[in-house]
Design a protein around this nucleic acid. Structure first.
Lengths: 226, 226
DNA sequence: ACCTGAACACCGTTCAAGT
DNA sequence: ACCTGAACACCGTTCAAGT
């Protein structure tokens, strides 16, 4: 499949914001946040560390731009024709998948950063909140609950991935160790944690995520009088 | 109020894990995560940076211990006598207050880290989940939703505090700027975001947090058949 | 105008040397 | 046994010098 680009490409070796971001994503995906350095990045781009500052303000900006690139290419807001609850599920799952495939996103993604992609997601989810009949004065609090849950999952996911990397283990091993520790706790003091240990280590992150989304959706429906 | 300690204090100038953590918390509270350095810390403790490694494994360990100290002193799990939903609210709000007073917690707190404090919170919340009649096979997913929401709020709170600090502004100013930006978006493409901008900048974080907790609680009740 | 890369002011962490 | 603090291998960021 030879793909013809609509316009003739400019000099391909020119440094550009896009090339910098693409290279950053490769580094982040392969080695986590620690792998992205202005030195590793400029090596990859065959230039000096200072050259990057011509296109990017600082490391925070770089990380935010990389997040934006992934999220905007992963989350498709076109499915707005479906029922409100289903649209929420679809968009939320797309965010989950993006954060699962690129755990570093979870540590950097913020809704205050002002990226247009994030605003688009807020708009989309917000319209479903409205369509579900939530009282207008609760629009923001409800949307914010949805958002904070989604970003919270991403953040914990990032922490798990990070813990796995520093220990040189798989994520499942890390969770297995936690479950092991939990199942050895005192039965009198920690009955719940003990009983849930097996469930925790065998769980499906994606399914659990959806349970959380549905919990919030059900709460919204109850609020709106079904 | 001269407080008499129960035992005679040992040599007060001896370096200890507790003194290191107390000093770390002071630095984190006054200047955020960037203010905690092995150099600033050892200056404050009138010693060399290397001395700290006798009591603490590394910076991650230090941060986790500081979180643990705050959370364990703030969250009182003694109120387990109340109704399940109310106990969830009380514990969750205590976590919120801890993360609000010490925003750096939100960026560092993880449930996999294995601190006993966090396990205690999971146990407490988990017992309420069970008492509310959630189906046993959903115990973990439900608890995890609660936890991820709480930690998500903390994480976003930390990001906001950090953004405010780097811009040398108050947190309210940062949110005000976001609201401003939102209210100037295209009315056709972003009706929800525009309409919610005012609500967002005028909101009460704590009240919104409670709305989120109640949403999840209502979802749990609906799940359990009321 | 844009890139280059040495230099600056820091980090976390280690470890020989002290007491 | 525990502390000390210089030293190591890094960071993000800047800026004179080049093209």
């Amino acid at each position: 499949m030879t793909e013809k680009s609509p316009r003739r490409p400019r000099r391909d070796d020119a440094l550009s914001r896009e090339r910098i971001i693409a290279a950053s994503i490769e580094l982040l995906d392969s080695g986590g946040e620690a792998a992205l350095t202005f030195r590793t990045l400029s090596d990859k781009l065959a230039t000096g560390p200072g050259a990057i500052y011509g296109h990017i303000a600082n490391k925070q900006d770089l990380l935010a731009a990389a997040c934006d690139a992934i999220v905007s290419r992963t989350v498709d807001l076109g499915a707005a024709g479906a029922a409100p609850a289903q649209t929420v599920r679809t968009v939320a799952l797309a965010m989950f998948d993006a954060m699962d495939a690129h755990p570093w996103i979870g540590a950097a993604l913020t809704w205050t950063a002002g990226q247009l992609t994030m605003v688009g997601i807020i708009e989309c989810l917000g319209q479903q909140v409205r369509a579900l009949g939530v009282a207008p004065e609760k629009h923001w609090a409800t949307l914010s609950a949805l958002l904070n849950f989604i970003l919270g999952v991403g953040g914990q996911n990032a922490a798990n991935a990070q813990a796995a990397r520093t220990r040189g283990a798989e994520r499942a091993e890390v969770l297995g160790a936690v479950a092991d520790h939990w199942s050895q706790l005192d039965a009198q003091a920690y009955p719940f944690v003990r009983s849930v240990a097996a469930q925790m280590s065998a769980h499906d992150d994606r399914a659990d995520f959806l349970v959380g989304i549905d919990l919030i959706l059900q709460g919204m429906l109850a609020d709106a009088g079904r």
